[in-house]
């Protein structure tokens, strides 16, 4: 099942399928390792509901829900 990263709940995990968005924001997402095939685990949501924290490629990354909405992820088993 394909889901947007912004809709993930904590502890959910999956594989990136497609990175949308445009310009510098997209460039940054790609540079930080959010590329097709990358495995991401949703860690938590910030106290005020946004941004979110995910684990990928062995480190912690934070991004806003608006940015996470550009990332399509295939949900798999952990």
């Amino acid at each position: 099942m394909i889901k947007l990263l912004s809709e993930f709940k904590p502890t959910e995990a999956g594989k990136v399928v497609r990175v949308g968005g445009e310009g510098r924001m997209r460039r940054r997402l790609l540079d930080m390792g959010i590329t097709p095939g990358a495995e991401v685990v949703m860690r938590k949501v910030a106290p005020l509901g946004d941004p979110i924290e995910v684990t990928l490629r062995g480190y912690e990354l934070t991004l806003r829900k608006a940015e996470a909405a550009c990332v399509e992820v295939e949900i798999g088993d952990r």
Binding site: M25, R28, L29, M32, E53, L61, T62, L63, R64, E67
Partner: peptide, 9 residues
């Protein structure tokens, strides 16, 4: 601006 940042250990 976007907020895409590493959270260091």
């Amino acid at each position: 601006p976007p907020f895409i940042m590493e959270l260091p250990a």
